[in-house]
Design a protein around this nucleic acid. Sequence first.
DNA 1: CGCCATTTTGAAGGTTTTCAATGTCAGTGG
DNA 2: CCACTGACATTGAAAACCTTCAAAATGGCG
Lengths: 239, 239
Amino acid sequence: MENVLISDSNSLEKSRCAICKIRSYSFCRCLPEERLKDFAKISEEKEFEDKKTIFLQQDQSKNLYNITKGNVKIYRLLSDGRIQIIGFLYPGDFFGSYKKEKYNYSAESIGDLRLCVFDQKSLDDYLEKNMNLAKELLHMTSHELTLAQDRMMVLGKMNASERVAKFILNISDQRLRIGWQNNPISIPMTRQDIADYLGLTLETVSREFTKLKTANTIKFLNPKQIYIADRDKLSSACN
Amino acid sequence: MENVLISDSNSLEKSRCAICKIRSYSFCRCLPEERLKDFAKISEEKEFEDKKTIFLQQDQSKNLYNITKGNVKIYRLLSDGRIQIIGFLYPGDFFGSYKKEKYNYSAESIGDLRLCVFDQKSLDDYLEKNMNLAKELLHMTSHELTLAQDRMMVLGKMNASERVAKFILNISDQRLRIGWQNNPISIPMTRQDIADYLGLTLETVSREFTKLKTANTIKFLNPKQIYIADRDKLSSACN
DNA sequence: CGCCATTTTGAAGGTTTTCAATGTCAGTGG
DNA sequence: CCACTGACATTGAAAACCTTCAAAATGGCG
């Protein structure tokens, strides 16, 4: 019975997009309700377990992805194995490539993950008929560029204490952005991941965490759960 | 007589854009010839001397800029005066902000500069009627993001020798991109600027230049003119 | 409860920075 | 014509910060 309702009536059928909880944080928020049904058709949802590769930098790019649940780390490798984590992505974040070329980075799940997968061509065709969506993507990409520039400052000019302090605040802010509590914050990635993100070693990251703990700026509920005890001190610690 | 021709005949009048030498390297390359005349009307060309501020980070953003001649440095400041140069821009490069908010960085001329200045609103309106332009901007912004991610790798994981080697190659590549000779390359910025771009001190940059010179990888025609003697060695030095 | 991965802590070492002095070059004036 | 000036670049030595290598501690999970 329910099957029948879901699969045929126009008025009663709710598309995957219509009931999507993170739509208001995604690029698709710019679409009017009546477009959601056909928009849902140009993507499919996929699930990934922890530490699964979504694509590698050297792969021929075909898709674009939107996170609906979980976290993704995107990273680059140097030929000798050195790694730089470009970013940790959250629900609502968008990644992949618009152009038929190699990807610019590799992408891997952190914890359980759910993604909307778009085909490059299908999305490009859809843009053609939906100027709003093209503009929204431009604004989002432009905003990502801002974040990337922020990270240049961190990686180029900040010392270890400042980097770690800023990292914690960034996580907190990002959680707030998608409507999660921003104080006891969970750190889903390992110390090694944090180090590769901040351009430090895991030992340095650990030492800086300890310093912040000793200064009563933060508390560790456990190694992956941080309570920010003094946000002002944390803010002033990252300049 | 010429004035008359320029100001009235539709068939004979050449718009500023129609005769623009760097159009093929700019976002406006995606416009068909017949659109150039009205496109030229939504921007005006401005000139700047060396070391002139185009805008500051804290300014309310109003404009978008396209370089038609010369170089621009875009940078961010920390409250204690530390500076990070986000990028050195070349003819054909596009900068500014799409949104009515603060700029994300400050911009300053390096040497004599000429810019096409666009009003945010006018360009946005123009996009509405020219999907191509919106897509082109999306692709260019997306490409900039790739470059920014490249720089995260440099700033986060590369040592001083690698950073300087990569810097020289980047300059060389960028010149090639806009059709300039890519071997004796001129370095328009100071050692301090290079240091602030690479997250190093000017002394370290100078020392690394000396090392490359001693290894016969590069030659200095003068402090601002570099001849790449061994491109392979330079390439392998940055990875 | 014990294992194993992860994290923390310790000590030595290295790369880059900092502080200081010297060198170079173009422009200016005697 | 040459010395002087000031901005920029190079070189040197000591110090700082982060890394490296090593060991101990912690915590999650069977």
